[in-house]
Design a protein around this nucleic acid. Structure first.
Length: 165
DNA sequence: GCCAACGTTGGC
DNA sequence: GCCAACGTTGGC
C-alpha cells in the first residue's frame, strides 16, 4: 500500500462522522463525487488501508472531526445512473458510460477535540494545508503525513493510538 | 445571506 | 478553441 493520507469533506447535515460511526460495521460507500480531479484521486490513488481525516464542511463548527480508513478501492458509483439520486448524472446515463467511482471507508476514531478551522489555521505547521486555501473546493484532498499527524495531535489522539486502531 | 473562487457549459 | 455566463461550493 502506498502511504498516503486524505481529507474527505462531508456536510454533517447530509452525512456526519457520527453517522459513519453508527453505520453497520462503521462502513459506508463514499458516493457522489462529481468532480474529475477528485475522481482521479479516488480511482488512481486511493488504496485500502490508507487513513484520512473526516472533515465537516458547511458546518457549525467547520472542523476535522475524526479519522477514517479506506477499506475498498474505487468501483463504479451506481448513483450516477439512478434518476432518484441527488447524484444522478443524466448526461452520463445518456452516453451510457459512467465516469464516476466511489470507495468504501470505515470510521476509525473520533477526535476527543474537534479540530476546528480556526485551530487548523492557527497552527504554523499546517500553513500549506490545501483545505485552508481560499476556494479549495476539492471534496477529496491529499494531506501530507506531517499534516495528518499534526491534526491528530490537535484532536487529542496520539499517533500510536491512531496507528493501532 | 453574501460573495469569492472555481468548474462546466455552450455560443460563436 | 476561446471565453462569458452560469451553477455550485463553502467560508464567513
Amino acid at each position: 500500500m502506498k502511504d498516503r493520507y486524505w481529507l474527505m469533506k462531508s456536510e454533517p447535515e447530509v452525512f456526519s462522522f457520527d453517522d459513519l460511526m453508527k453505520a453497520p460495521k462503521r462502513r459506508t460507500a463514499w458516493e457522489g463525487v462529481r468532480n474529475y480531479q477528485a475522481r482521479n484521486l479516488l480511482r488512481d490513488e486511493f488504496e485500502p488501508g490508507q487513513l484520512g481525516l473526516f472533515y465537516h464542511s458547511n458546518a457549525e463548527p467547520t472542523a476535522a472531526v475524526g479519522v477514517l480508513r479506506v477499506v475498498k478501492a474505487a468501483y463504479a458509483d451506481p448513483y450516477a445512473f439512478d434518476p432518484k439520486s441527488d447524484y444522478y448524472d443524466a448526461a452520463a446515463k445518456k452516453r451510457g458510460e459512467n465516469p464516476w467511482v466511489m470507495v468504501d471507508v470505515e470510521g476509525v476514531l473520533k477526535f476527543p477535540t474537534p479540530v476546528t478551522r480556526p485551530m487548523l489555521a492557527r497552527d504554523k505547521r499546517l500553513k500549506d494545508m490545501m483545505v485552508l486555501r481560499r476556494g479549495a473546493r476539492l471534496s477529496v484532498q491529499p494531506v501530507t503525513e506531517a499534516e495528518f499527524r499534526v491534526v491528530c495531535e490537535l484532536g487529542g489522539l496520539d499517533w500510536e493510538a491512531v496507528q493501532s486502531a
